[in-house]
Design a protein around this nucleic acid. Structure first.
Lengths: 208, 208
DNA sequence: ATGAAAAGTTTCAAGGTCTGCAGATTTACA
DNA sequence: TGTAAATCTGCAGACCTTGAAACTTTTCAT
């Protein structure tokens, strides 16, 4: 239960970090596909075989914090305000999702933005991220159902979570594809949440 | 512009079909991961190299009709009823999506259900299908925006499409993971659409 | 029909990801 | 200090995927 500060643990952390940094740097320099696992391992000064004891695949090296991020999300859902409407919770979740890694016990800012850039530009990485998220949605749905037990059953909660995720994702994709700036992409995601919250049935004229 | 009924074309169709059938049969028998491309090619009596002239990857052999399906979707959106509310269109789209391949100029029923089973059970295939769909969502969003030009801008349309897709997908996933029957999974998707249509903001008590 | 052009298939070689295994190395701890 | 445990490495191999060149089949004009 303690922090495990033995030499062994410290080395492991250092190696993992070296691999991630080397990978992001090389991906950024030469592109994801033109970078090999062997090169990443060489840059981190470990054997290629060791790379795969730290990460299950070449793609996974960029998704180190994905699970932590999901945990954060689940936590935020569980700790919703006593009377917080569902819509406001969703906006809070969105801000949580798009905000950078503020805990600096992980990779520093430069790496983090490079990572974000890569996730948008490299199709293989975007696909991987989406799949990871999708597979974790049931966890979030369960948390949401627990947070609003009187209003949501499990399937409704899943619909809300999936709708949130799909709407922001596709809105962001469209915004990106038409050349919007990063800020505009974020704004598109927020608009998407408004659409989801309002619903598409009793369709009033667009607000703005 | 004609049907191209030369011997060459007929052979190509036959080979493609043989590859798809062999792949589905083998995947079903031995599982996706334990089936190699070489085995599929051998079963279809072509060289392994030829497999890759027909399909870009091992996964793609199961997504032959994916693009046609998307075209169908875009068409359905474009040809919406004159005053059809958005919510009803979405339900129609869902029925279109989940209905089997009724045109029997393609694979027969047994293969089609095996394919559906595989898409649900094999994570790699599920991920691939999701990614394919995701990447095509902007096309659907554009069609939707054109169909409702007064009510939707492009980002809102993207939000609706993405919300539809994500909600049905995650609801289906949750239903599947808790062991629901295929019919129940479909029903979960329909409930998800209701949630999206109604919106999560002015949350009344669940309808039923 | 015939022969050349076009299209499709096969063979071969190679690069890359990922896994299992055995042995070497390093760390932990009594 | 020596033994046990954890970790790293090297190696062999399976598999996916691609490029190029040779080979076969189909098409089509003459």
């Amino acid at each position: 239960m303690s922090a495990d500060v033995g030499l062994r643990e410290r080395k492991k952390v250092r190696t993992r970090r070296a691999l991630v940094e080397a990978a992001i740097r090389l991906f950024d320099e030469k592109g994801y596909e033109r970078t090999t696992v062997d090169e990443i391992a060489a840059a981190a000064e470990v054997s290629p075989r060791t790379f795969f004891t730290y990460f299950g695949s070449k793609e996974d090296v960029l998704f180190l914090q994905a699970e932590d991020r999901l945990d954060q999300l689940v936590e935020a859902v569980a700790g919703r305000g006593p009377c917080e409407p569902l819509g406001e919770l969703l906006l809070r979740l969105y801000d949580l999702l798009v905000q950078g890694v503020d805990d600096d016990d992980e990779l520093d800012i430069a790496l983090s933005t490079a990572r974000a850039r890569l996730l948008l530009s490299e199709p293989a990485l975007r696909a991987r991220g989406m799949t990871l998220m999708f597979n974790q949605q049931p966890r979030v749905a369960e948390a949401l159902q627990r947070a609003y037990p009187d209003q949501l059953d499990l399937i409704s909660a899943a619909a809300v979570v999936g709708g949130f995720w799909g709407a922001t994702g596709v809105a962001g994709l469209v915004a990106q594809q038409r050349g919007d700036s990063p800020e505009e992409i974020l704004a598109a995601g927020r608009r998407a949440i408004e659409v989801i919250v309002r619903g598409v049935g009793p369709w009033a004229s667009p607000r703005d």
